[in-house]
Design a protein around this nucleic acid. Structure first.
Lengths: 352, 352
DNA sequence: CACTCCTGCGTAAAGGTTTACGCAAAATAC
DNA sequence: GTATTTTGCGTAAACCTTTACGCAGGAGTG
């Protein structure tokens, strides 16, 4: 019989409780709390007091059901461990929060069927919109996205798609910038370590490498191209040995992303090779640790944070503005960030 | 009049549509689709066929409302840019996903009122549970957590709290491990760069430093303690100069986290000081880039990923098992990870 | 004074699902 | 053959909100 806090099941306080407490109807309470419709200042005072007093908090599930809005945005990325996606997620979180949305983080582990699964499940209405950065953009992706009621923004590489809002960056062009820079520094035999070539970014970057060679009338030497396996740090470290097997040894190497570049630099360091004196290294993405590496890594920024912000803003626009405007594509230009890993050392400025 | 795909508002397909399509009641459809209650195999076949054919997807908001479960877990952390929290988030995401939950990412930007705001808003039932790693655990935190209907797991430093599920790590003990290691290497004047000392981790680590000194009968020299401002990389870089102003120059430095340690190493490098020959450096957290630094950074792992996993499992247990079991505390032991930044160099093993 | 307009608020429906309950028919028991 | 249990399914309530609609009374206008 001692029921002093035996069980929690103490039925939530609902809008009806507030209404009863201050002798009005639930409609009035709702109007006051949502500042919608008409009510007297006296009623407002009483309702607000009652609500505060009994600790009323509107039930989000019921609200969603009625309003047909969850106030949630889903973000689908392939690997939350990748600093690039973290940067994106961070700025996206910022924007959606400012607009009163919560962010749901969905990780696909680089599995295409997971991506499709997410698209399908959007039909269940657990989020009002989706930002997705797919590893590849297949016909199936397109099909499901088109079928969705909610707006979708795709963060991806350059593509011909014009039927969905997207934030694009031409990473292939980024590779060309890197190549130009290396050539201007006097390097001419430049190797290329790629990530998985069947992914959109992998393909784009490889094409960038080819076209840079063509552009500068350089011979295409397949021996200079190494498949890095994946876009990870250990992927770079592992394949760096193959770099040293190339003969004659290349003067410089472009890596398809910073993580791999850092892995490569580490391997070179362990083998006693100095960067850039013995081999110049350039990465891509401009993650925070690129600037911290020893030597600081030259890289091509793809403006991940910026792209995240833009994608989120595009989505907010869709959600709050005219949803029938034609799909928008916004493009972002890769930017070369020159640091010490690729500049010819004239004089060594030693300290102390 | 040409209404060929003019507007989207084409009312969602509901359970009623499925029911009508195959001539049963909505209750039957629900039973079949949820594999609950009784139904014939023939009915099952028809319902499933109809559902698939017209592309039925159960509305998540309605389901939540009725079931009183959102199938969502909220994660509140102060900075998604911090690799430690990323590691936690990653393993938490893993676990909750395996249990059929989605993860909502809430960022507090290290603002205490944001943390409280999140606790309050949990009453709105947008998530079934919460994992929070608060910068500090105040009376107000406790009050609101106790008031919540949903289970909460706190990831934090060691504390006296026993009224809430928590995953604890004694980072102060971690600092003592670092100190012991440095002393065993022959260093004796060891400086300490702390993060904000009013936060739980800041205070714990400072106390760890003090007690390590006491433990080894070393004099307490306030001049060896530097307030690093925050736990960021630039925070470490900025305050490193003050390290060199100390006279006589300390032989080693313990930094309250890896990011600051990396900042310090960078500064030392720029000033021409070599680590560990001129000064040994030890960090804390064991973030991925600690092993990549030059030289690789000795650090104390606080097992962030592990703690995230444990917290998530604790929460799942609460949600799926007996919710009235007494609060659990699980503790994790800091682990010293020795790398080159703190070991006396006997012979230099150069390559090539 | 009669009319219209406005204000403040209540009634009730709607949103899509799950599930307790009950009923008819079929299956089983004796 | 009747009595009992089991099976399969439908009816309707419940979850908690928001909001369209309408009504009564007061204010304004002529």
């Amino acid at each position: 019989m001692t029921d002093n806090k035996m069980r929690k099941p103490v039925r939530d306080v609902t809008i009806a409780d507030v209404a009863e407490k201050c002798g009005v109807s639930i409609a009035t309470v709702s109007r006051v709390l949502n500042r919608k419709g008409r009510y007297s200042v006296e009623t407002q005072r009483r309702v607000e007091a009652a609500a505060r007093e009994i600790g009323y908090a509107p039930n989000h599930m019921a609200k969603s059901l009625k309003r047909k809005r969850t106030e949630q945005i889903a973000l689908a990325i392939s690997d939350i461990g990748n600093p690039v996606y973290v940067a994106m997620a961070k700025s996206i979180q910022q924007v959606v929060k400012d607009h009163g949305y919560r962010l749901i983080l969905l990780s696909t582990e680089a599995l295409v069927h997971e991506e499709i699964g997410i698209l399908k499940s959007m039909a269940k209405h657990f989020a009002d919109g989706l930002i997705i950065s797919p590893l590849l953009y297949s016909e199936e992706h397109r099909k499901w996205i088109k079928r969705l009621k909610q707006p979708v923004v795709v963060i991806s590489g350059i593509a011909e798609e014009t039927d969905v809002d997207s934030v694009l960056v031409d990473s292939g062009h980024g590779i060309r910038l890197a190549m130009e820079h290396l050539l201007s520094q006097g390097y001419s035999r430049v190797a290329f370590i790629n990530g998985p070539s069947q992914t959109v970014p992998g393909r784009a970057r490889l094409n960038g490498y080819y076209s840079a060679l063509v552009e500068h009338n350089l011979p295409i030497d397949e021996g200079l191209i190494i498949d890095g396996g994946d876009f990870t740090l250990s992927g770079g470290y592992m394949t760096a040995s193959r770099l040293l097997e190339i003969s004659p040894r290349p003067e410089a190497v472009i890596c398809a992303n910073d993580l791999m570049a850092l892995g490569v630099m580490r391997y070179l360091g362990e083998k006693g090779l100095r960067v850039p004196r013995d081999m110049a290294v350039v990465g891509m993405d401009d993650i925070e640790h690129a600037s911290l590496a020893v030597p600081p890594l030259t890289t091509v920024s793809l403006l991940a944070a910026e792209r995240g912000r833009m994608a989120a803003e595009l989505l907010m626009e869709r959600l709050e503005g005219s949803s029938d405007a034609p799909p928008k594509q916004v493009k972002v230009l890769p930017k070369l960030v020159v640091r010490e890993s690729s500049v010819v050392v004239e004089t060594v400025t030693g300290g102390a």
